[in-house]
Measured scan of single mutants.
Amino acid sequence: MTYKAILNGKTLKGETTTEAVDAATAEKVFKQYANDNGVDGEWTYDDATKTFTVTE
């Protein structure tokens, strides 16, 4: 399944996708990606669109 992350960081804005077996696995991948890029904020998840959003 393909999951998407939308990054609304102070220094990084954009989107990325990952293939994962479930939302929990995708969330770990996206949170690591955000952390590696200095983005730390509030996370939300929309199951209907399989989209995570982080906003700083």
Results as ranks from 00 to 15, higher is better:
V39T: 03
E15F: 14
K50N: 08
V21P: 15
T53G: 02
K10Y: 11
L7T: 03
K31L: 08
G9E: 03
T16Q: 09
K13G: 05
D36H: 07
T18H: 07
K4L: 07
T16S: 08
T2P: 06
G38F: 07
N35Y: 15
K50A: 06
L7Q: 01
I6T: 05
A26I: 00
D47S: 11
L12R: 07
L12D: 05
G14N: 07
T53I: 09
T49L: 09
V39A: 04
T53E: 07
K31G: 02
D46I: 04
V39R: 02
N35V: 14
A20G: 03
L7W: 15
L7I: 15
K4I: 11
A26Y: 00
A26K: 00
T49E: 06
Q32L: 09
T51Y: 01
T49R: 06
G41C: 04
E42G: 05
T2Y: 09
E27M: 14
K10A: 12
A24C: 14
N37A: 12
E42Q: 11
D36M: 10
M1G: 13
G14E: 11
E27N: 04
E56D: 07
D22V: 02
L12A: 08
M1R: 12
D47F: 09
L12G: 07
M1D: 13
T16K: 10
A48D: 12
T44W: 07
F30G: 00
F30C: 03
F52Q: 00
N8R: 09
V39F: 14
E56T: 06
T55D: 07
F52Y: 05
G9L: 14
N35D: 11
Y45L: 02
I6D: 04
Q32W: 05
G14D: 09
I6N: 05
K50W: 05
T44V: 11
Y45V: 01
K4H: 12
L12P: 04
T51H: 01
V29Q: 07
N8M: 11
G14Q: 12
N35F: 15
Q32F: 05
E19Q: 14
L12T: 10
K13T: 09
F30D: 00
T11R: 10
T16C: 15
E42N: 10
V21S: 12
T51V: 06
G38Y: 06
K4N: 06
D46L: 03
K28Q: 12
I6V: 11
A5Y: 09
E42F: 12
T49Q: 07
G9N: 04
W43M: 03
E42S: 10
T11Y: 14
T2G: 05
T55W: 10
E19R: 13
T17I: 10
A26L: 00
A23C: 13
D22K: 02
A20Y: 02
T44F: 10
T11P: 04
V29G: 03
K31Q: 08
A20H: 02
G9Y: 06
V29I: 15
T16P: 02
T11Q: 11
T18R: 04
T44P: 00
A24K: 11
